[in-house]
């Protein structure tokens, strides 16, 4: 789990960990989808070279950056393949 936020959420004894459901009222569905897509993309490509860039629509960019910050993916994103 590369997102410390998600990790903390699911690791501890909190409600999310118990129910297995995470709500993110701050973000709209397309953003969460993008985040999920990124996590998947990261997981698939983490040990490979010459990986194609993840396609992020321009209109989503800013919010995706914001989400990345929220999920603690910033520094990871910078180091990502």
């Amino acid at each position: 789990m590369i997102s410390p936020t998600l990790k903390g959420m699911l690791r501890g004894p909190f409600a999310e960990a118990q129910s297995g459901r995470c709500h993110f009222p701050e973000f709209s569905a397309p953003i969460i989808e993008k985040v999920a897509e990124y996590l998947h993309y990261y997981h698939q490509n983490k040990d490979k070279e010459n990986v194609p860039d993840l396609d992020i629509p321009v209109e989503l960019c800013l919010v995706v950056v914001q989400a990345a910050d929220y999920f603690g993916l910033v520094s990871k994103a910078l180091n990502a393949p």
């Binding site: 936020t5 903390g8 959420m9 501890g12 409600a15 709500h23 993110f24 009222p25 701050e26």
Partner: peptide
């Protein structure tokens, strides 16, 4: 008594 707490909401609060 933490099992009822939503991590997300707390995280959001500190965020």
């Amino acid at each position: 008594n933490s099992s009822q707490l939503s991590f997300e909401s707390l995280y959001r609060a500190s965020y």
